[in-house]
Design a protein around this nucleic acid. Structure first.
Length: 283
DNA sequence: AAAGGACCCTGGGCGC
DNA sequence: TGCGCCCAGGGTCCTT
């Protein structure tokens, strides 16, 4: 479910009920997701105050007041559901977990955050806050696309002499953080670049156009996701995803949205994943 | 070092 | 109603 905009939407949904609150009790219903949970995770979380929620790429980072940071990745199907009564009294009841509920954080303000993930490609870990960026999962991730270090010169340099298709290159988190299958397709469509084109053989000026386009695609998606947050129970970001209408993603056989184009959207498979594009608009 | 494929896991949709 | 197949927003690991 989550690319950068959806993860940011989840972070924004969780922040009001988690930041400043204490994890009164952490319930762990299985020993692992993608990897085993860290040692004594429940004890290390229970009683900790959440200082702030951050995001790095598709990871949510919850800095705790004990020098540790909870790292959360949603994988393909992970959700963080908010329930309970965050503005009311402490909720002591512990309803039976629903299917695929793996971790529940009962906050001292009455909010309950449930991590639900059917496919279990998600992950959780606890890291030292001071060295969080050096953590194995974060160390080699490229620049944040909405940050200052994602520049035209960075992207030109990162793609230079790369032999892989531009589609695969933009999915590579070392080149730029946070993009996934949907928004890569959308960004390539808007830039007019064919997804199979070799990354290193695209002209400098065309690569440069990708930078503002990627920013725009992500920012627009975040704004759309934000509108689904009015009901905080939908902090999982799902509405932000598919209520959005994409130009190409998932539109195989449907008409290109460019006026007068007349082509239909095509689907190809690149490194095992679907790519949607307009063969007329993208060269 | 770089590129491509298998693999992790569950569930939904489809054709038969 | 069941079965088998394909597909899905992510990422790591292994092989060339």
């Amino acid at each position: 479910m989550p690319e950068l905009p959806e993860v940011e939407t989840v972070r924004r949904g969780l922040a009001p009920v988690m930041e400043g609150a204490v994890i009164a009790q952490a319930q762990i219903y299985r020993p692992d997701l993608r990897w085993p949970f860290p040692e004594r995770m429940s004890e290390r979380l229970t009683g900790a105050r959440v200082l702030q929620l951050r995001r790095r790429s598709k990871y949510i980072l919850a800095d705790l007041d004990r020098g540790e940071t909870l790292l959360v990745h949603l994988g393909m199907s992970g959700r963080m559901l908010v329930s309970g009564d965050p503005l009311g009294r402490f909720v002591h009841d512990h309803p039976a977990p629903e299917k695929h509920d793996h971790v529940v954080l009962n906050m001292d303000n009455g909010a309950r955050i449930t991590f639900n993930d059917p496919r279990r490609f998600g992950a959780m870990d606890l890291l030292d806050t001071a060295t969080a960026e050096a953590h194995k999962l974060l160390a080699s991730i490229g620049p944040e696309p909405l940050g200052n270090s994602f520049t035209e010169s960075h992207l030109v340099g990162a793609l230079d002499s790369r032999n892989m298709p531009i589609k695969s290159a933009l999915l590579d988190q070392k080149i730029v953080a946070g993009l996934g299958n949907i928004y890569v397709c959308e960004a390539l469509f808007r830039s007019g670049i064919h997804p199979a084109r070799k990354a290193g053989r695209i002209s400098k000026s065309r690569v440069e156009t990708l930078v503002p386009i990627i920013r725009e695609v992500l920012e627009t998606a975040i704004e759309a996701g934000g509108s689904s947050l009015r009901d905080f129970r939908q902090a999982d970001g799902e509405l932000g995803y598919f209520q959005h209408s994409f130009d190409v993603y998932g539109r195989e056989g449907e008409p290109c949205k460019v006026a007068e184009c007349g082509q239909t959207i095509h689907r190809i498979v690149q490194s095992g994943r679907s790519t949607f594009y307009c063969p007329s608009c993208q060269r």
